[in-house]
Structure formats: C-alpha cells, structure tokens
C-alpha cells in the first residue's frame, strides 16, 4: 500500500513552474497597478476607438 502511494507520488510530482510563473506575473500586475496603469486602461476602454474598429 505504502509502495503504491510512493509510486503515485513519483508519477505525480507537484509542478512548481506554474506557481513561479503565476507569482512573477502577479508581481508584474502589482507593479502596473502601482504606477496607476489601470486608470489609464479604463480611460481608454470607456471610449470608442473608431480607427481601432476600422471606422474613420
């Protein structure tokens, strides 16, 4: 029994790479937030960008 669970642990190690990647992008998101970027994004997103959608 313990041998079986030991084998399954070997086959299914917890992957750390996704956690590192997510943490890195979370840090990037926080840096962006600290510079006030979301406010700028909101300013742009509430306006219709006519040239962006092929008009004008």
């Amino acid at each position: 029994m313990s041998q079986t669970s030991s084998n399954s642990r070997k086959k299914s190690p917890l992957r750390k790479a996704p956690i590192v990647v997510i943490a890195a992008f979370l840090l990037l998101w926080l840096i962006g937030g600290a510079t006030g970027e979301p406010g700028r994004v909101l300013e742009q997103a509430v306006q219709v960008c006519l040239s962006c959608i092929g008009i004008g």
Partner: peptide, 11 residues
C-alpha cells in the same frame, strides 16, 4: 505605462 498590469493579468 509599460503595459505591466495588462501583461500581468493575461500572464
């Protein structure tokens, strides 16, 4: 405004 918050979100 380097786009970090956007990159962070989709990352």
């Amino acid at each position: 405004y380097f786009g970090f918050s956007v990159l962070g979100s989709i990352g």
